[in-house]
């Protein structure tokens, strides 16, 4: 199934993008980390329901947590996009057996969902950037979590409508 192979490629590419998105800003992972993440992405390509993708995404997040302290570079948004795209690709691949062709309508629906959830990352990032160096750490966290909560509520309100539109 060509569509399945495209989706597998997207999964692997998005995972690697999440790890390597910081290279232009001098956040370069070691070869070992790249190899481990690449292996995890490869396993996830063929077994999208396996724990391998969760572990690989965890490794990426831990690596970024070690790299960043209080900084909030633009690359973080790309990493967030990479992680949600990898998650969505794995979700789409797990809808049926390997022989199941990817439904275009479902892919469009999930594309919109991914874009919508990514806005939550954008909201947190904007709030964090706005408050960086101005407020206390507690205020910063409250602002970030509030932005995430607002994003979730907005997403919950919009999502069923989107699904119905796509079905109709």
């Amino acid at each position: 199934m060509p569509s399945v192979w495209v989706l597998r490629g997207v999964l692997a590419a998005a995972t690697m993008l999440a790890l390597l998105a910081g290279i232009p800003e001098d956040y370069t992972p070691s070869v070992f980390v790249v190899v481990v993440v690449a292996l995890g992405a490869t396993v996830a390509m063929f077994r999208p329901e396996h724990l391998a993708l969760s572990i690989t995404m965890g490794i990426v997040i831990v690596w970024w947590a070690l790299q960043l302290r209080s900084e909030m570079p633009v690359a973080v948004l790309v990493v967030a996009a990479g992680l949600i795209v990898a998650h969505v690709a794995a979700t789409l691949l797990a809808y049926g057996p390997r022989s199941l062709a990817v439904d275009p309508a479902l892919t469009v629906l999930w594309g919109m969902r991914a874009a919508m959830t990514w806005t939550a990352a954008l909201a947190v990032w904007v709030v964090a950037r706005a408050y960086s160096g101005h407020g206390s750490p507690e205020l910063f966290w409250l602002a970030g979590l509030a932005a995430a909560a607002i994003g979730a509520v907005v997403g919950a309100a919009v999502a069923p409508l989107r699904a119905k539109e796509t079905r109709g």
Partner: peptide
Amino acid sequence: RPAVVVLVAPLLVA
């Protein structure tokens, strides 16, 4: 690490 919240926010929403 505030940046990590940005990384996982889409997953939490999903």
